[in-house]
Design a protein around this nucleic acid. Structure first.
Lengths: 269, 269
DNA sequence: TTAATAGTGTCTCTCAGACAATATGCG
DNA sequence: CGCATATTGTCTGAGAGACACTATTAA
């Protein structure tokens, strides 16, 4: 360890930074964002029609290359930062008002014809704010019902985005079982219990027990904090409005396969 | 769309591949592996002592740069492939006998002093096979008890590996609640129910109800398939040996905070 | 014999599922 | 009124938590 040829870490890094680098053999890194919302009760995903090669004319998740600056350790932007920037550029969403989390990274050979491109996918959930798609880019943006994706009804998808979307949908459907905060991120606060129930119905794609859902969601202490206001225009009695409390995890979780009714129609009606 | 300047995707890609590329401003991509096992009943993580700068002498997760070939789309290796290669090179594990899954990707500025380096972390679980650490590299490899990591007892960790390890530990502790297959991947098949219980005790760090665990794990249909053999040397009666069946998800899940006893000692004794 | 353990049985109490009932608002 | 809905209440059955018990093996 007392090697006379020993160099310090600072010396090593100086050598590393100024080394000869090939102009090939480097990969690129992108972020892709699966942005979900609920529009008119329909669980929907934002896609952008590509205006450039490759996959020109196909629909793709919003996203793009991560700015790595000049490659120095402290230069460029982080992954989360890239996501917020791309959201602003591609969808016009300056301040993202929902939930964002990393999904996973895709790096298979051949997933991008331009070269080796790693893509870190994110899942974003937000309420349906009436100033949606179509950002600074002239690119066409559109919300598609999740149920249509992957079917003949759905759009033609670029790259491996069909697989990413499938993973993202499953992440959302699974995680709202035990993360109540996720479901609430589809709504603007304050909201009513039936509104929250309709989030689950939209995401899971079927009716959810009405009275059981109400009792279950209210039984999680600290999850919903009542406000003094109510909301009319429900087609029934005024509904109390709640905001999110601190208790975020649902113990025990909602169970998708049990909360979902097999047949159409709430038995409660 | 009938632009006369329009080029085909093939033409575009040819231009893209042969473009001028800077020798700077590119990031690199690594994989890091949090390899867990249970040794003598202790939930443990494999770390490698770094023989080179940066962080020379510190302990780090096994891993390394992903081979991206010459940067062409089909050249190099995929992420999973890189993980298996690094496992072989750094730990001598040629055929990985456990469970492997992607954790998440870390890309913060400054996380690697050499430059912008994205790292996709993996979680690996395997039984304690008695031919462990110390691979082709002369590097020192060692299993550390997870409980010691992050304390003064634990090793000094390189890069942001302390944060990665914390995420990995929480992933394992959380996921074995509802993924029985994960817990079983710490064992060699066939195994007994008490052996499986000790996996939970090791990972969660406390005693688990003995009789309740037995009843619960047996009640999940298709999870454990009995063999005709038994195992002696248990300190008690011979225990039946089981192998994993098809039913992998535990519905409803084991609940860590309920299955774990608050105090030492199984009330069952 | 003693101690530790594998496996089973039993009681209780919580809670999810099922469904009824009541009150409210809209056309 | 008739209908859909919000919210509360009640009954029941499944199952988790708690704990006792038996059988078996090692020291």
């Amino acid at each position: 360890m007392s090697d006379p040829d020993e160099i310090t870490e600072a010396e090593y890094l100086e050598q590393y930074r100024t080394r000869e680098r090939p102009t090939y053999g480097r990969a690129e890194h992108t972020v892709d964002i699966a942005l979900f919302t609920i529009r008119q009760g329909v669980f929907s995903l934002l896609l952008i029609r590509r205006g450039n090669h490759p996959y020109k004319g196909y629909w793709a998740l919003p996203g793009g290359f991560v700015d790595v600056g000049d490659g120095e350790s402290e230069s460029g932007e982080g992954l989360d930062q890239a996501v917020y920037r791309e959201l602003a550029e591609e969808t016009g969403i300056k301040i993202f008002p929902g939930h964002l989390e990393q999904l996973r990274t895709y790096g298979d050979l051949g997933r991008d014809p331009r070269g080796r491109v790693f893509s870190t996918a994110y899942v974003a959930l937000m309420p349906d704010i009436p100033s949606p798609a179509g950002g600074d880019d002239a690119a066409e943006a559109h919300f598609f019902p999740v149920a249509d994706l992957g079917t003949d009804e759905g759009p033609a998808l670029a790259f491996d985005h069909a697989a990413i979307i499938a993973d993202a949908v499953e992440r959302v459907r699974g995680k709202i079982e035990y993360e109540g905060r996720l479901a609430a991120s589809f709504l603007t606060s304050p909201f009513t219990v039936p509104e929250l129930r309709r989030v689950y119905e939209a995401v899971w794609g079927g009716p959810v027990h009405r009275s059981d859902f109400h009792r279950k969601v209210m039984s999680v202490k600290g999850f919903l904090v009542p406000t003094l206001t109510t909301k009319a225009d429900t087609g029934g009695p005024e509904a109390r409005l709640y905001r999110l409390g601190e208790g975020t995890t649902l113990h025990p979780p909602f169970q998708r396969h049990k909360m979902l009714l097999d047949k159409q129609g709430d038995r409660d009606s």
